[in-house]
Design a protein around this nucleic acid. Structure first.
Length: 493
RNA sequence: GGCGACGUGGCCAAGUGGCAAGGCAAGGCUCUGCAAAAGCCUGAUCGUGGGUUCAAUUCCCACCGUCGCCUCCA
């Protein structure tokens, strides 16, 4: 089956047809770098990471652009967020933005998210934004008032087509101070005049000021991907006004469709005091940073959790050390460990396996798994269904490898390759190696040595020694498992 | 109030007009020096009430409930 994508523009699953055959231009709204990245960001960016990985796996040449918004947005009070933060920290705004930009990349890297091909900064594209605004004014879609420029929503009849909103049904804007300047309450700022105390400021044809929130995405998407590109992604919470306004600006400037397919990711939810799920967000203060989550769980586990739900659905994030309490993370961890158990078993067996095709009955299961996996992913990137294909394969692999029959090296390599491709390359939940770091090989050899010594102790029924080795390794996070054939495998727990 | 999404076994979660994937948890079993792991077995009238149909969890209507957006948010 060919790739189908649920297009928010039209609200239906559609066959995917790129502008240029074999090539995909894709833009995803990035973060505003004004605080640490939390698990909510992780959900969105892991989801698109897997989308990009799968598209590449499918043979597409993908150009993936994700912006960094570092010019700040307006607060209700009219105060710039980054500016406010800078004042608190007594640093310059760009210093704050740079700090959180670095932290953002660190967090995403740690989650195994492949970097976008281009991560353009809004602050580095002020001229492009000004150029767009000038064109909008020239074409009658925007107007200038007192050094600020607003988009005239009534000049664009399609305004609201993404979020299904009608102008006359919207509540009037609440920002009293700016409402007077607007011709229509739904008009939004393209350029804002900077008050004297506002440090983030740039020269423009309308005086000193700073760009509105939505224009940077229109400017950078057009610059790197062209007037019309294939996929635009982001979180659903930005469907209005942000995404809607991006479309309006871009289509009015270029007189061409902006993005052909809109993919919006469901929000990450966290139970409140009553156990009712609410969106994780900075303003509610109910967020868990990526860094904190990674202190307790491996990145692959967090990815597994995120992929256990469809990208469009909200996902409940919960964790508790109390075994009686629900923990979606613990669930994900246990499932992931079972899957990885099969992977380690396969790789471990490879070292001593005879050449040949013994046990090649599993090849049919590998083929089935791959087919089911691809069918799931082709169907609007149905990761939970794809994951299920991997879990079913895992049962068959475990059965084979625990059956005591000989399995040839070629067959083991085929199994490993399937996990590497689907679980590693596409989903990013199957690491290449058990251990990371520069001394990984040496460490593995040392562990192997202890395992061998323990085996000798067991053979001579010196269980006091063998159990002590196992116990002490366990305390270091290395779990040993004795196999029916007398061998022992180890893994990081 | 407007717009949108959703309600599937204890929890999470796919899915289809025709006997309801998968994961976690629980119980039983097999294997085992112990441990661990793995495998097998056990469970759902798919929110409620109508309607369409030979047949609905799947389509339509109503209702109840939950969440999101409408203000900064991925």
């Amino acid at each position: 089956m060919a790739l189908q994508i649920y297009n928010v523009l039209g609200r239906e699953k559609q066959p995917f047809v790129p502008v240029q055959e074999g090539k995909i231009n894709m833009y995803v709204c990035g973060p505003t770098v004004q605080d640490y990245a939390h698990i909510g960001h992780a959900k969105t960016y892991v989801s698109f990471d897997v989308v990009v990985r799968y598209l590449r796996y499918s043979g597409y040449d993908v150009l993936y652009v994700q912006n960094i918004t570092d010019v700040g947005h307006l607060l209700d009070t009219g105060e710039d967020r980054i500016l406010k933060k800078a004042r608190q920290a007594a640093s310059s705004p760009m210093q704050i933005a740079e700090y959180y930009t670095r932290k953002y990349f660190e967090a995403m890297d740690a989650l195994g998210i492949q970097r976008p091909d281009i991560s353009p900064r809004a602050s580095g594209h002020i001229p492009e934004q000004i150029a767009l605004i000038e064109q909008l004014i020239h074409k009658g879609h925007a107007y200038e008032v007192n050094g600020s420029v607003y988009f005239d929503v009534r000049s664009y009849p399609e305004y609201g087509k993404l979020s299904n909103r009608k102008l006359d049904e919207q509540e009037a804007g609440t920002r009293e101070d700016v409402r007077d300047e607007k011709r229509h309450p739904a008009d939004f700022a393209l350029w804002k005049k900077a008050e004297p105390e506002h440090i983030l400021r740039w020269e423009s044809p309308w005086g000193v000021g700073f760009p509105g929130w939505h224009i940077e995405c229109s400017a950078m998407a057009a610059k790197y991907l062209g007037e019309t590109f294939d996929i635009h992604g982001g979180g659903v919470d930005n469907i209005f006004p942000h995404n809607e306004s991006e479309i309006a600006q871009s289509e009015c400037v270029h007189d061409a469709p902006f993005a052909n397919y809109w993919m919006l990711v469901g929000s990450l939810m966290v139970p409140d005091a009553e156990g009712i799920p609410v969106k994780m967000s900075k303003s509610l203060g109910n967020f868990v940073t990526v860094t904190d989550a990674l202190e307790k769980y491996r990145p692959e586990v967090i990815r597994t959790l995120i992929l256990s739900g469809h990208y469009r659905s909200p996902l409940i994030y919960s964790d508790s050390d109390d075994p009686e309490q629900e923990s979606s993370l613990r669930s994900a961890k246990n499932g992931w460990e079972r899957l990885m158990g099969a992977v380690w078993l396969t790789r471990d067996a490879m070292a001593a396996a005879p050449e040949g095709d013994d046990g090649n009955g599993i090849l049919a299961a590998l083929s089935t798994a791959r087919t089911r996996f691809e069918e799931a992913m082709d169907d609007d990137f149905n990761a939970p269904s794809a994951l299920a294909a991997l879990y079913e394969l895992t049962r068959e692999v475990n059965t084979l490898l625990n059956s005591g029959t000989t399995v040839g090296k070629n067959v083991l390599m085929a199994i490993d390759n399937t996990y590497r491709k689907l679980g590693g390359e596409v989903l990013g939940i199957v690491p290449d190696k058990m251990l990371g770091g520069t001394n990984a090989d040496r460490e593995a050899a040392l562990i192997r040595m202890l395992v061998d010594m323990r085996s000798e102790a067991r053979t001579s029924k010196n269980y006091a020694v063998s159990d002590r080795i196992r116990q002490q390794l366990a305390e270091l996070g290395i779990a040993l498992e004795d196999r029916p054939d007398g061998s022992t495998i180890w893994r990081v727990s």
